[in-house]
Design a protein around this nucleic acid. Sequence first.
DNA 1: TGCGATTTTATCGTGCACGATTCAAATATA
DNA 2: TATATTTGAATCGTGCACGATAAAATCGCA
Lengths: 150, 150
Amino acid sequence: MDETQLLLGNQLCFPVYSASKLITKAYKPHLDRLGVTYPQYLVLLVLWEQDLQTIHEIKQKLLLDTNTLSPMLKRMEKMELLHRKRSKTDERSVIIMLTAQGKNLRKQALQIPEQLMTSMACEDMNQAGLIQLRDTLSVLIQQLQKIVNK
Amino acid sequence: MDETQLLLGNQLCFPVYSASKLITKAYKPHLDRLGVTYPQYLVLLVLWEQDLQTIHEIKQKLLLDTNTLSPMLKRMEKMELLHRKRSKTDERSVIIMLTAQGKNLRKQALQIPEQLMTSMACEDMNQAGLIQLRDTLSVLIQQLQKIVNK
DNA sequence: TGCGATTTTATCGTGCACGATTCAAATATA
DNA sequence: TATATTTGAATCGTGCACGATAAAATCGCA
């Protein structure tokens, strides 16, 4: 048995875990100006792309469960970013719809991705490298989803 | 302004965030056998590598703050995985020391990294690709730490 | 030596994550 | 039609994350 397998520096899980937390932290000053948290920002990205989606659809796209989304969407409703209403055709489903305020935040958010990409790039990692990293992670995610059989 | 910047599929942040959650989920069945959570496993990795470290040292290595580590280490003390004692030379510092049980868990953990690497690899992403991904993320983390000026 | 600044840890409050459970609506099946 | 199964949300409990604050010990420097 290879004893070096357990060294922190040899793990893949730790860089992914740390990078995720650090990216969230890097987003924070930008998202503070919008008054939303990072997971709330992800919900807005999904709704800006297409308004009027069920909780189930949002859940599929963000890989989040309803026990996370339900309370979060209620907080966002209280913040008057969105409305929640039962579907007419299927009373089980709840449809999420942006308010005018929720739609307006999009304008303020437009510059965030570019600012982040710029600040994350450096001499050892240009923007092309970041995009390649994104695509590499997407491949990993596909494989991980098979493992955890969602 | 490029309107496609806000599409979920164009973000780097989302794949990192999802990959992190999915990796944690992929570890769960293995860590359940050890009776620890994923962040607790990270603490054990650090302590297996070198026993008798202060909370400050663990904090530096895992990029976690004391408001996360303090309660977590107390839970792990209650689980009898480790002891906490004040440093003789600096009464501010708390030194963390593994119990026999905490040390013994290492044997059960030895095979976890290899099992995970095997299950994460696939035809579109071999183990060499995973290692390269790890190193790419490490570069990104260096840059992110500068941004969030820890 | 004395005292302000820094370091180290702990605590509090809020917001995710997520396993487990519950419930109602819709669908499948006998 | 009646019953069983599935589906979509919500709720509960536990454990992170983390900003803000506090408290004690140490350090730096006049």
